[in-house]
Structures are given as C-alpha cells and as structure tokens.
Design a protein around this nucleic acid. Structure first.
Length: 554
RNA sequence: GCCCCCGUAGCUCAGUGGAUAGAGCACCGGAUUCCUAAUCCGGGUGCCGCAGGUUCGAUCCCUGCCGGGGGCACCA
C-alpha cells in the first residue's frame, strides 16, 4: 500500500513539474508514514515539506500542486487532505484493504516475507559461550536475539547462516582442565589448594567423577600436564554437549559450530599473523607481536602473540573473521554481551585491515539480564558455581515464556527477568496473551467444523461484507506485518515483531468481544472466518520467527 | 580519567525528524443464556533527566552537564 501511494505521489509530482507548477524536478525520496491520529488518515507523507527548500515554495502550496495532479486509477483512495504545515494525508477506501486477506491466504506461511535482502549472504554469530560451564540467563538473551534476528533476516530475503564459535583452545580451557584435575585429586584424598581463578561449581565435581569412571587409568598418577590436558578435553566436550542440548531445549539451532582449535589445526592463525606481519600491520615490540589496530580507529595497538609465544584470543578472532569473509559472507553480524563492547574497535580494525569495508561487520551488543525472583535479585557467581542456568529457567518458566520475554525489550536496554512474573499468566507476561489468540481462533474453527460450516478459501466472494470499523481495523493491522518485519530486519531490532504481535493480539481480542465470527448469515460467517484465519496465520508466522509455539488449545 | 548503554506516567517499558508522546501493570467501576473471561469496555496521569545547538519542525540528531549500570590488561 505504501509503495503504491509513493508511486502515485511521484507521478503526480512529475506531472505538476511538467505543467510548470513546480520549480524543480529534484524530488527527495518519498517517505510514507502511518499517522498516530486517525484524523490524519491512514497514511501521510511529508513529501511537500521536505522539498520546500529545493522548490523555494511554501510546503502547502507544493502539496496543493501535487494533490491536484494525483490520479488513482485503482480507486484506492477515499480522499486526500492537506493538513498542518503541509502534510499530505491519505484516507484509504475501506474495501481497498480486503485484498490483503486474499494475499495472506495465498502466501500463507510466507506472508510477511519480502526480498529486501536480495539473497545477500549474511552470517549471524551468537552465543559462542566458552565451553567452561553451563549457559546462563544472559546467554539465553543473546540466543533469543540472535536466533530470532537470523529468522527475520531469512524472511526478508537474506541468505542467513547462524554460527556458534567454540572457544575450545587457549587459557580458559586449560583452567577448566586444571579445575577438574584438582577436584579429582581432592576426591581421591590428596590435599589441594584451589587457585582463585579455578572453576568450582558442582558441575566440576560431576565432571571429575565422570572422567574417573570412564577410564582405567588413575589420572592422579600420570604426569600432571597430560592429566590436565586430558581433563580439559573431556570436560570441554562434555560441557559443549550440555550447551547444545540446552540450546536445543530452548529452540535454538545453529547451521554451523565452528571450532577455534580448527583454526590452529589448519594453520589459519599462523598464516593470518604472517600475512599481516608481511604488510607491516603486525609488528614486533618488546618481544610481543602487536596488531596496528590504532591505524584503523582503535585507541591503541593490541597484542596478538605474547612474549611467551602464546597467541591471544584476539589472534584467533582475527583469523576467524578473516575466514568468515573468505567463506563468502558479504555481511557479518556478531551478537555479543555488552561487557565486550571495548572489543569492537579492535575487531572492526582487524576486519578493515583484512580489506573488508568496516560497514560489513556489525555487532549487536546485548545488555545484561538481571535475574529476579519475586522482585528480589538472585545472587549469582560463575566462579563459585552458584547460578541459575538457562536450563533451570527454561525448565521452570517454559521455553515460550522465556524466549518471548527476552524479546520484549530493546536489546540495548538492561532486562529484569523475574522468574515469578515469567510463570504468571497475566498481561504482564504477554506471551500467553499472544498465544491465546491462536488458541481462540483454533477453537472457533473447531466450533465451525462442529456446526458443519465449510472453511472458506481465500477467494470467497463475501469479503465485501466486512464493513464494520472493527473488521477494517483488524485487516489494517494485518497489513502492517510485512512492514514490521522489514523494519525489524533493517534496524536489527527483533523486538519490533514482539510488539507488533501484542498489538495484533490486542486488536483481535477486542474484535472477538465485539463481533461474532459464526453468525446466522452464511456469507458474513465465511468472510469473518477468512479474516480470523488471516489473523491466525500472521500470529503463527510471527511467533515462529521468535521461536515461540502457536498452540491450538490453552 | 576514557569508552559503551540507559534516563519517557506511581512501576515496567514502547516510540522510523512530524501533527494532540503511547501500552501493560497497579487503582476504581462495569461486561459472560451466545465462537475459550489466560478476554473485553470505561475512568488519568507526563518540566520525554537538565542546558544549549542544528532544523520549517527534536523524546529522536549534535555538544556539555547530572544520575544509574557496564567496560578498561601481553585476561576473555
């Protein structure tokens, strides 16, 4: 509808210029918006105001010239008005909305999808938690945001790959191995001191018990480094399996799990370092190798190989992101926790040094989650192993509620996640409010079948019986869905879909209380069944993008 | 000290440079012989943190300040 109106405006403006009514044919891009106030019509454009300076004319005067030339061959418009400082307001003929229902019926699960992405290859990397412990609630938020955003991009015509980067190499993994090893020794009675940086959760104890059961070898009696390394590999593998299963339970699936260690195994870290060294982007100072990130906007240079010869995680990250673009992704999006924001300049620098334009690398910084129970903070400490895991949360409040709540805030806002609230089935927990629409409509359909009412196709001839303001209002809301998805994709804001669904749900519930779907009038019943089927389809499509189920009964 | 995010109704939060800034919760009152009451309808709230600037127009963009949270390493 918006694109149609924009085309009409442009044609009218061109006509007005040809007639000498306008001074310039240098027209700005046409922006059509939906006014908040009904009195301002269904759509509105600031076209005339925006070009006032170029035309050297009063905005209202321009608007008059344009609307005078406005043609409406399809009869979409009831009227146009010039209002305020020069807005052109469009009032759409109610029946012009009806074809939307046909479109929903025809495109069904693809309704709302678009092709603004043009098949562009995009990678979304998210979660990527180190396999040193179970996922916590913050990871859950990143998972919900990354997964849903990936879904939305796919729906908008991007060729999306979702990837999880496994930090299965380096210092933290060794610390994990050491933690398990020391716990193992403690279990077998050796006196041990646990260094402060060791992990101490119950899961470490379980891992220690598991590894000893799984082998004939007494790991406390073999050389220490070998034992630690063995513990590390075992523990990382086991924890990663747990992470996969937790994400699976959360409804999050990755196209690829990318191992950091594989970069070393293929020599990609060494070759990246060598390449940048050859180009003098990496240089040596005080025995360490430094990446010249300051030449690309970072505040100072960063170490990639320490003076003891060990590479830093940054070194792997450089090789990893280089590899991403070499795999053909035109755009790479990383979803990180907000505590990593200081890492953005150096990563961007590395990408740019690799010959990629910095705008092709984007980071979504997801703010922290405060876990509450009944308003009181839940104390958590990763090192001490006292925390509520993502799995705990999903088990307690359910996958649907958890996923939806993570997407009811802009990701740049800190989120209070209250476990008690998440379990409540009130309007403060809107996932049920939205799902209830789907269930209610299923119920209407069951009732219709019971009464022997046939289910309408999209082409039913009775749609023009949908004439009440409530009918039209609901269809208008449905018509907004494609725009909502595109805005969510363009602005990288999946929460827009959640808010849209709440809005649609509110519209439907109001409709349900005011109008009957199954009436004595066969034609009207057919028409309204088509309408509520449309609502159900859009709810289902939206929820699917968010990874939330659409139940037929509640 | 430097960097990032936040500051909008009593609370939790939406808000794409546009017109009279919106929801939910909480509070009060009402609606169900009839498709699921996990629902709906009515009732009122705002120096959009403060001060400048850009603009025909700023909650939105820019600068400074105030308040809250997070981050600064040859850690990740």
């Amino acid at each position: 509808m918006k694109t149609k109106l924009a085309a009409l405006l442009l044609r009218a403006a061109t006509g007005a210029f040809a007639d000498g009514q306008l001074n310039s044919s240098d027209f700005p891009p046409i922006d059509i918006e939906e006014p908040k106030a009904d009195a301002h019509g269904d759509f509105s454009s600031n076209f005339a105001m925006v070009m006032a300076a170029v035309q050297k004319m009063a905005p209202r005067k321009i608007a008059e010239s344009i609307t005078a030339k406005l043609e409406d061959p399809e009869g979409i418009l009831l009227k146009t008005e010039i209002a305020g400082p020069g807005f052109i307001n469009f009032f759409v003929r109610p029946s012009a909305w009806l074809p939307v229902l046909k479109e929903i019926h025809q495109t069904d699960e693809r309704f709302g999808h678009a092709n603004i992405g043009n098949g562009e290859k995009v990678q979304v990397e998210f979660v990527s938690a180190n396999p040193t412990g179970p996922l916590h609630v913050g990871h859950g938020r990143g998972a919900a945001v990354g997964d849903s955003f990936g879904n939305i991009l796919s729906a908008c015509g991007y060729d999306v790959q979702k990837e999880y980067y496994i930090n299965d190499s380096g210092r933290q993994i060794r610390t994990l191995g050491l933690s398990v090893y020391l716990r193992l020794k403690a279990i077998s009675g050796d006196p041990v001191d646990f260094p402060a940086d060791c992990y101490q959760g119950d899961y470490i104890r379980e891992l220690a018990e598991d590894i000893q059961q799984g082998t004939e070898l007494d790991l406390t009696r073999i050389p220490e480094e070998a034992a630690i390394s063995r513990c590390a590999r075992f523990a990382a593998k086991k924890i990663l399996a747990g992470i996969r299963s937790d994400l699976d339970a959360f409804g999050v699936h990755f196209d690829r799990w990318f191992s950091e260690q594989s970069l070393f195994d293929k020599g990609l870290v060494d070759s990246a370092v060598a390449e940048f060294k050859g180009r003098d982007v990496i240089y040596e100072n005080e025995g360490a190798l430094w990446f010249r990130t300051s030449a690309f906007g970072d505040e100072k240079d960063r170490v990639v190989v320490r003076s003891n010869g060990q590479t830093t995680y940054f070194a792997s990250d450089i090789a990893y992101h280089k590899d991403k673009f070499e795999r053909g992704f035109e755009r790479v999006i990383d979803v990180w926790g907000a505590d990593h924001h200081g890492y953005i300049p150096r990563m961007t620098a590395a990408v740019e040094a690799s010959g990629i334009h910095r705008s092709n690398f984007q980071v979504i910084l997801v703010q922290l989650v405060n876990l509450l129970r009944g308003g009181a903070p839940v104390a958590m400490s990763t090192r001490a192993g006292e925390f509520v895991t993502l799995r705990d949360v999903v088990d307690e409040v359910g996958r649907d509620a958890a996923r939806f709540i993570f997407l009811t805030r802009h990701y740049e806002s800190p989120l209070d996640f209250d476990l008690e609230l998440a379990k409540q089935q009130t309007n403060e927990n809107p996932v049920y409010y939205v799902q209830y629409v789907h269930a209610r409509i299923s119920s209407i359909l069951r009732k219709a079948t019971e009464r022997g009412v046939s289910r309408p196709g999209g082409n039913n001839r009775h749609l023009d019986l949908l004439t009440t303001p409530e009918d039209i209002q609901l269809i208008k809301t449905l018509a907004r869905f494609p725009d909502t998805l595109q805005a969510a994709a363009r602005m990288m804001e999946p929460h827009r879909v959640s808010y849209y669904l709440m809005d649609l749900a509110s519209g439907f519930h109001a409709y349900y209380n005011k109008r009957r779907v199954l009436t004595d009038d066969q034609g009207l019943t057919q028409a309204r069944l088509t309408l509520v089927l449309g609502v159900q389809t859009v709810i289902r499509n939206g929820l699917r993008l968010l990874g939330v189920s659409a139940p037929d009964r509640m």
